[in-house]
């Protein structure tokens, strides 16, 4: 019994796909591995020790990064900012997306395209007017000012994603809810939001990442160290000309952990959210 051509083709195709996917995985994971490996090294060995596992393991880098970088305060701030901003974005964007998708009001398309157009403006481009506005409102160096700005940053993409999701929601579900006595807010709360869970998961992870890693806007709007996010702590280890690499890598490892955790917890929803559409309802 000989091997047929189809089996050979399938074998090579699968092998090629596996090799390609493995190389992509290695490309993604290697920087993480390098970060963790460097976090265990010393300043003396980081440029000389080329071994896979460092010859001298320095566990104290993590403690030093935590204390020198004042991570306790910054960590708490980042948790507050991430939780508030993501909650704000989910509430506002789901309400707005629901309105753009299911309600009729004058200028509906105009306002929606305005939101979409906002995605094209890079954040640094709006720094000066944003700062002037926040200063006029007396919101510079306040937590609420930073949170409101960050909610605004994440709205465009979130509204766009959710509107696409709500557009595919069957009208019958709304009618059924209306018969059961639901108003517009009731339908949004009891029908639309639960159905949009996969899309919301995507919004949560994207925006959590964005807020957790944000620093430039924080340094523009906040003055007090006590209000700064976690990324500020990482700046301590980077001088104008020199960088304390092992401590910085230990700090980065600490900073990356919560985001990796969120991703692991929500990955099922994220994949569903990214590939969803036809299954709504």
């Amino acid at each position: 019994m000989g091997i047929n051509r189809y089996q050979v083709y399938k074998f090579f195709k699968l092998t090629f796909i596996q090799i390609f996917l493995m190389s992509v995985a290695v490309t993604c994971l290697f920087p993480l591995f390098w970060m963790v490996r460097s976090a265990f090294m010393t300043n003396d060995t980081i440029f000389t020790d080329k071994s896979f596992i460092p010859k001298i393991i320095q566990l104290g880098n993590f403690a030093q990064a935590w204390t020198d970088g004042n991570f306790g305060v910054y960590f708490l701030n980042s948790i507050i900012y991430t939780a508030s901003v993501v909650t704000g974005i989910v509430i506002v964007s789901s309400l707005a997306a629901y309105a753009f998708s299911r309600l009729n009001f004058p200028g509906k398309n105009f306002f929606f395209y305005m939101f979409v157009a906002a995605m094209m403006i890079p954040l640094p481009g709006s720094f000066v007017p944003l700062f002037v506005l926040m200063n006029k409102l007396g919101l510079v160096n306040t937590r609420i000012g930073y949170i409101l700005c960050m909610i605004n940053v994440g709205l465009s993409l979130s509204i766009f994603l959710l509107k696409t999701f709500f557009d595919k929601m069957p009208a019958d579900l709304e009618d059924a809810a209306r018969i059961d006595g639901c108003g517009k807010l009731g339908i949004w709360w009891y029908v639309a939001l639960p159905l949009a869970q996969p899309a919301i998961a995507v919004i949560v992870i994207f925006n959590s990442l964005n807020v957790w890693n944000e620093y430039i806007l924080a340094s523009l709007l906040l003055n007090d160290n006590s209000k700064m996010p976690l990324q500020k702590g990482l700046m301590v280890f980077q001088g104008a000309h020199s960088v304390d690499y092992p401590i910085l890598m230990a700090g980065l490892t600490i900073a990356a952990l919560p985001i990796i955790l969120i991703y692991l917890v929500m990955q099922k929803h994220i994949i569903k959210g990214l590939s969803s559409g036809a299954i709504v309802g």
Partner: peptide, 14 residues
Amino acid sequence: SDAYTQRIIASAQA
């Protein structure tokens, strides 16, 4: 320094 420059320009405007 990039963040600093942004902050200085924005603060000058305001």
